[in-house]
Amino acid sequence: MNDHKGVWVFSENYELMLELLAGGRPLAASLKTELAAILMGSQLNDRATELVRHGADKVYSMDNPDLKDCHTERCLSLLAKLAIEHKPEIILIGSTKSGKELASRLAARLETGCTPDCVQLDINGQGTLTTKRVVYSGNAVVTATYLKKPQIAAVLPRAFEKPEPTERKGHVVTVDVKIEKSAVEIVEINEIRAAEVKIEEAKIVICGGRGIDKKEDFQPLIELANLLGGQVGNTRPLAEDRKWFTEWIGLSGKKIRPALYMGCGISGMIQHVAGMRDSQVVVAINKDPEAAIFEVADYVVVGNLYEIVPAIAEQLRKQLS
């Protein structure tokens, strides 16, 4: 079955595509094949050379005004056509919500397997891709391998560090783009979050849960986050039930892996833990000594968050001055 060759990466999110190059590089090396990036967009300028500098051996570049906002339908038909023509062995796609839709539909068109939300990629003794991902609401890690080609994997943001650019040579192939009429029309787009730093990129996340009674009481967490140059996050009930926020951390929300996660008034239900378990250091503050969050914490603080959080801020101010 090995007329398939090459490792491809694609994401509608350019930064994530750079991370995918880091994930794809060792796979291509192990298979002694080339690493190609699929670039779609409008007015791409130097992006192709930049992708080469970040590790791509080849860039298939599709530059067209109609590709300005990534429209999943359009990206899908272009990507499927290219894959049928060139038969890559592995296709890595950024595991955003749109990316997962794209990966699933591509897999359906190519009649092959796909694993979503991968956090680790390896080539096994048979030269087959194996992936790891978290399932069962964070209760388990599944290792999976492939029975068909191409092998499609959707890779979570921050599973790989964006590679350092180096001076290297690559091959840029300009692909003719024919945009077909799409069955789905985008009527309107509303940005819901224009934060300067995305929560996934924050090094420090101070996270609040239902132990915080009123929205104003979130302020001490914000102050602490500011002091530490971090961001605040929250559990789902604060967004969904109380409508204080529009997003949350967890299985059905954002997955974060900061250097420091501090959970304040959070019980530690598996669905929340699924979004923060990869944090480097975990601090949990909860007044209930039996709270489940303490099972996944490095530092256990049994106490009232209303007293502890301001005390930490005060201590930091003392240290800083």
Partner: peptide, 19 residues
């Protein structure tokens, strides 16, 4: 197209140190 090789509980190697 995909075969599950292993399903294991993730390793939690946390210090669980009470402050």
């Amino acid at each position: 197209g995909v075969k599950i090789m292993d399903v294991s509980a993730p390793k939690v190697e946390r210090k669980k140190e009470t402050i």
